[in-house]
Design a protein around this nucleic acid. Structure first.
Length: 474
RNA sequence: GGCGGCAUAGCCAAGUGGUAAGGCAGCGGACUGCAAAUCCGUUAUUCUCCGGUUCAAAUCCGGAUGCCGCCUCCA
């Protein structure tokens, strides 16, 4: 089955063919590290984590590069505000980013280059552009000359003329065209800087990605990803830089993920509604966050809300509950067990431009099928069929980065977390539960119900199961 | 002014020519001392509206309406 993906460059779905057989080279724009990561960063990271995982699952050897922008205006400004060194600041946020993404089970890319580690390459590419007449020097700044690159605008589908008509563009008389952008910025007092043929300075934003992808993946590579907002100007400028410098196609497939809205509103500084990953993780299981993010196609906007997250958390419980039953009945879940129908259909959905929402549908069908069998008489080959479901669930989970915990531990942790949040002493609750159990044994229903009522008022829900009574936060 | 996207049940969401996946909530049943939880089952003659093409359309074409994004730092 062929993998197809939507290519922003051609505005249509295409059959994926890698440049080199069996190998995929992929570059994704990582964060500018001047603040904590928000849910939008998480979406991008999770989306491309899925791409990374799935490509490997279907047999490719993937070189996945995701950069850190560790020098730019915002970092410099933030460092100044905090009276910190820019490097210390970016270092701090890189660590935070790693912690957050690790928690979300986002695999580390093959390489995570930082802009400041590639100054040499940045200067090299910039020099090439100057030499070839695609860039010009002004007082120690170097600008890319957009008029010199004929197909400027091809990625974002716009024309310079159209944009200039109604756009609000900063006027800078020194630039030949308002859309010319800085490759190199001359040093200003108090800013980090490096030596260059044009004097001391630092790289502009767009050039780092051209330089780092070139260095790590070559002049042409397979997939370039990032958030939809990066299409213009960032990726448009990357195309211009790289193709002007090397004279070859830069990227074969461009993939862009959609935004995360918060309660139907765009995240923005003015609304002050940026949701920080670590705050979300205090409240929800990381796999519930992934489930939520993957429940809609990666190119569509997704709306974050308390309700949506609760639904995702409920769905996650459902899968783990089923896994627990499967484990209890047919023994250890065998990852190696040949997964058939469910897995095949799951792959068909993933092959269709990473349709994770559709794939999740198959996942839940496997859960339902297993539960249905387990509720039946388990005659004939039902045992094997349940195992097939279990194996499929695990295998799908492996691609989705979910269901990695032992179900027993998952539910135990959940209870512990609930008790902690509720500020209850577990043993005290256990005592009350035991008292109620005794009352029930004595058929003293009034007493039992009174205790249950007491617990309910404390926000604790009681569940009587064949194995005894358990409790959790309501 | 330019470019692009979306509109499917109470909510979220797949499906892009062959007669509507899945999740959450609800409801019915099983289970329970009663509950809760869990499991099973069930829930859109119909896909914003109006035309058109076709044996056949949520899916293609034309038009209308509504919502949203980008063109400025942004995942």
């Amino acid at each position: 089955m062929a993998l197809t993906l939507y290519n922003t460059l051609t505005r249509q779905k295409e059959t994926f063919e890698s440049l080199k057989p069996g190998r995929v080279s992929m570059y994704v724009c990582g964060p500018t590290v001047y603040d904590s990561s928000h849910i939008g960063h998480a979406r991008s990271a999770v989306v491309f984590d899925i791409v990374f995982r799935y490509l490997q699952e279907v047999g490719y050897e993937v070189t996945y590069v995701r950069n850190f922008t560790d020098v730019d205006d915002k970092i410099i400004q933030r460092a100044k505000e905090r009276n910190m060194d820019t490097q210390a600041l970016s270092e701090m946020y890189i660590k935070e980013f790693h912690d957050d993404m690790d928690a979300l089970a986002v695999l580390r890319p093959t390489a995570e280059p930082r802009a400041t580690e590639f100054i040499k390459e940045i200067v090299e590419v910039t020099s090439m552009l100057v030499d070839k007449g695609h860039a010009y020097v002004m007082d120690g700044d170097v600008y890319f000359d957009v008029r010199s690159f004929e197909s400027y605008g091809k990625l974002s589908g716009r024309k310079l003329e159209d944009m200039e008509a109604g756009a609000r563009v900063k006027v800078d008389d020194r630039k030949k065209d308002p859309f010319d952008f800085a490759l190199w910025k001359a040093k200003k007092p108090g800013e980090p800087s490096w030596e260059s043929p044009w004097g001391k300075g630092r790289p502009g934003w767009h050039i780092e990605c051209s330089a780092m992808s070139w260095s790590r993946l070559g002049e042409t590579f397979d997939i370039h990803g990032g958030g939809q907002d990066l299409i213009f100007p960032h990726h448009e400028n990357e195309v211009a830089q790289s193709e002007a410098a090397f004279g070859k196609q830069f990227v074969r497939y461009w993939m862009h993920n959609g935004f995360v809205n918060i309660n139907s509103e765009k995240m923005s500084k003015s609304l002050n509604n940026f949701l920080i990953v670590r705050e979300i993780l205090e409240q929800f299981h990381p796999e519930a966050v992934r489930l939520f993010l993957l429940s809609k196609h990666y190119r569509s906007p997704v709306d974050f809300s308390e309700q949506a997250m609760k639904e995702a958390a409920s769905g996650l419980d459902r899968v783990y509950a089923s896994m627990d039953r499967i484990q209890e009945t047919v023994g250890c879940l065998q990852f190696e067990h040949e997964a058939s129908g469910h897995w095949t259909r799951f792959c068909a959905a993933m092959d269709d431009d990473f349709n994770t929402a559709g794939a999740l549908g198959i996942l839940f069908e496997a859960v339902r099928d297993a539960n249905r069998l387990l509720d039946g008489d388990m005659a004939g080959d039902d045992n094997a069929r349940v195992q097939e479901c279990g194996a499929a669930i695990l295998k799908m989970g492996h691609v989705l980065g979910m269901f990695q915990e032992d179900p027993k531990i998952y539910f135990e942790n959940k209870k512990e977390k609930a008790a902690q949040e509720g500020g209850f002493d577990q043993s005290m609750v256990d005592d009350l539960v035991a008292q109620r159990a005794q009352a029930r044994k004595d058929k003293n229903w009034a007493e039992a119900d009174a205790i249950r009522k007491q617990l309910t008022e404390m926000g604790i829900a009681i569940e009587d199961t064949p194995e005894g009574t358990i409790w959790k936060m309501a």
